[in-house]
Amino acid sequence: MDRQAYSQLEQQITPKTPIALNLVKAFVTGGIICTIGQGIMYFYMYFFDFTERTAGNPTVATMIFIAMLLTGFGKYKRIAQFGGAGSAVPVTGFGNAMISAAIEHRTEGYVLGVGGNMFKLAGSVIVFGVFSAFVVALIKTILVKLGVVGW
């Protein structure tokens, strides 16, 4: 079997990714996660002294706490299978990546296993987040100094 025939056969056999269906699933999953987040946000605003601006931080932390429980009991995997990007794009997905890595590598010890592997998947997000924040802030500050834009 030559290469062309093989690739043809491969294309026939592999199931086509149903893009439309995946999009709907991602939309619904992500939407539900954000709606839960909105509920938690209102909880913090109603019972504690947080405004709409400041309630975001405890909300994110609580969402990651929920992600920890779901990951620990092995339920997040199922959500991820259904939701695709819908479960990966919210911070719960980021939390899941870090938490599952921490649980999985516990047998290698806390320092080398947990501490070292926690950032294996999520580290790139932090690296690019911090670096892009630096670049954006630098560019904007220079532009402001030159008088091109205001704050």
């Binding site: 605003m45 109603y46 002294d49 947080f50 405004t51 709409e52 309630a55």
Partner: peptide, 9 residues
């Protein structure tokens, strides 16, 4: 003056 829901409450 604030448009924040918390302040409103």
């Amino acid at each position: 003056l604030s448009t924040d829901l918390k302040i409103f409450w």
